[in-house]
Amino acid sequence: MTVDELTLTGERADLLAALGKARHFLRFTTRDLTDEQAATRPTASQLCLGGLIKHVTEVERGWAAFILEGPSAMGDVTEVTPELVEQRTREFRLLPGETLAGVLAAYEEVARRTDDLVARLPDLDATQPLPSAPWFEPGARWSARAVLMHIVAETAQHAGHADILRETIDGAKSMG
Rank of each mutant, 00 (worst) to 15 (best):
T168H: 11
R61G: 07
P131Q: 10
A162F: 00
A105R: 14
S143L: 12
V59N: 06
R145G: 12
A101S: 13
E69F: 06
H55D: 06
L94A: 03
T99E: 00
P129T: 13
A64R: 04
P71A: 12
I67K: 02
L104E: 06
P134Y: 12
L94Y: 00
Q87R: 15
E167Y: 08
R145F: 14
E83F: 07
V110Q: 08
M149K: 14
R61L: 09
L68C: 08
P71W: 03
L165W: 05
L95K: 01
E60F: 02
E109V: 10
I67M: 09
I151M: 12
I164F: 09
A101H: 10
V147I: 15
E137Q: 15
L148K: 07
T89C: 03
T89H: 12
V59Q: 01
E167L: 04
W142V: 03
L84D: 05
L165Q: 02
G97W: 04
E137C: 10
E109W: 03
L117D: 04
K54V: 00
T99P: 02
P122A: 12
T78Y: 07
E60G: 02
R93E: 08
W135Y: 15
R112L: 14
E86Q: 10
F136Q: 10
E83T: 06
L121F: 15
E83C: 06
A119W: 08
H55K: 10
P134N: 14
A133L: 10
L124E: 10
H150G: 07
V147P: 05
T99F: 01
A144C: 13
L121C: 15
L94H: 01
V110W: 04
E58K: 08
I53Q: 01
I53A: 04
A73Q: 05
P71R: 08
A101Y: 09
E98Q: 13
A126P: 04
Q128C: 08
D116L: 15
A140K: 15
A133T: 09
G102Q: 00
I67R: 03
R145E: 15
P122R: 11
L100W: 02
M149I: 13
G102A: 03
T78G: 03
A105K: 13
R120A: 13
L94P: 00
V152Y: 00
S143E: 10
L130K: 05
R112V: 10
G102L: 01
V56N: 00
P134G: 14
W63T: 00
G62D: 01
A159N: 02
V118M: 05
L124S: 09
G62H: 01
L165R: 01
E108L: 07
T89M: 05
L68S: 11
E137I: 12
D123T: 12
E167F: 07
L117F: 08
P96A: 05
S132L: 14
V56D: 01
G160T: 06
Y107S: 08
